[in-house]
Amino acid sequence: MKVAREPVVQAGLKLLNEVGLEGLTLRGIAAELGVKAPSLYWRFKSKQDLIDEMATEVLAGLVPGLVNDGPPKGWRAGCLNFSLALRAALLRYRDGARMVGGSHMRDGSLYQPMERILEAFQGEGIAPSDATACLGTVYSYVIGFTLEQQAVLSPTGERDPRYALEAREQRVDAERFPLTRSIGADLFDGYDERFERGVRMIVDGFAASLARPDQRPK
């Protein structure tokens, strides 16, 4: 029996929240749908093939919000809005950042909002190559930041015992590494504030590099 793409992808995203990326299997998804596993292989050749489709579905969900808000009010606002929307989408799913990072997108759904952001760069005289360098850095930052956050906190906000602040303080020698020991709370708390601050630092740094020809992205 052939199974349509959409039910399989939705079942995969549901199961992802229950078992995580490592526990996700085509056999488990087939059981969730009430079909036999071989019926999925005619559509998805491998687990990675399915993950690519799931990642595409997650990123496609960004489009309505980014487009319906109208053109970004400048490239800085465009970068911030994109980063916030992407992080929120990744956090909706257990291992969301691991799933999306490195996956192959199956359609061009993100091209429309991306075009609007690039137009905002262009409107301020910034070349596409420079704009791409900035957006690529922001995208990588979002994936990496969210990956680390999801390693520490569960989808329900519970902290992995390995990252308990008390345990870290015991591991780090206060006499030898006083500064390192003091930043524990900064590393594993206040994620929302730290995330936005990081994006603004990237954007500000990019803007400063444009003012210095020797520092411009190649």
Score class of each variant (00 low, 15 high):
V152Q: 09
Q170I: 12
D107A: 00
S182L: 13
R194F: 01
E57A: 14
M99L: 15
L86T: 06
G78M: 03
Q48W: 02
R87F: 03
F188D: 04
E6C: 09
V3P: 08
F177Y: 15
L21W: 09
L135Y: 00
A207M: 07
R162V: 14
Q150M: 09
K45L: 06
W75L: 05
V3M: 15
G123N: 10
E193P: 01
A89T: 06
R27H: 09
A151Q: 13
L24R: 12
F177S: 08
V138E: 06
P161S: 13
D69A: 15
F188V: 12
K218F: 01
D214G: 06
L187Q: 06
A85G: 05
V9W: 12
T137Y: 07
Y141L: 08
V19I: 13
E196W: 02
G74A: 00
T137A: 14
L90C: 02
D189E: 15
G123A: 06
N17R: 14
V3S: 11
S109V: 03
M54G: 08
L80N: 05
L90S: 04
P72A: 02
L153W: 08
L118F: 15
R116F: 00
V142A: 03
D192V: 07
G184C: 02
V203M: 11
G101D: 07
D107Y: 01
L59I: 07
L86M: 12
R87Y: 02
R200V: 08
E119M: 10
T56S: 13
Y111V: 14
G28H: 09
G101H: 10
A211Y: 00
M1V: 11
L84T: 04
V58G: 06
A174K: 11
L80Y: 03
F82M: 07
Q150C: 07
K47A: 08
N17L: 13
A30L: 08
G96S: 07
N17H: 10
N68R: 11
L86G: 01
G65D: 12
L179I: 15
A60N: 12
D107V: 00
E18F: 05
G125V: 01
S46Q: 00
E115N: 06
L33E: 04
V3Q: 14
D107L: 00
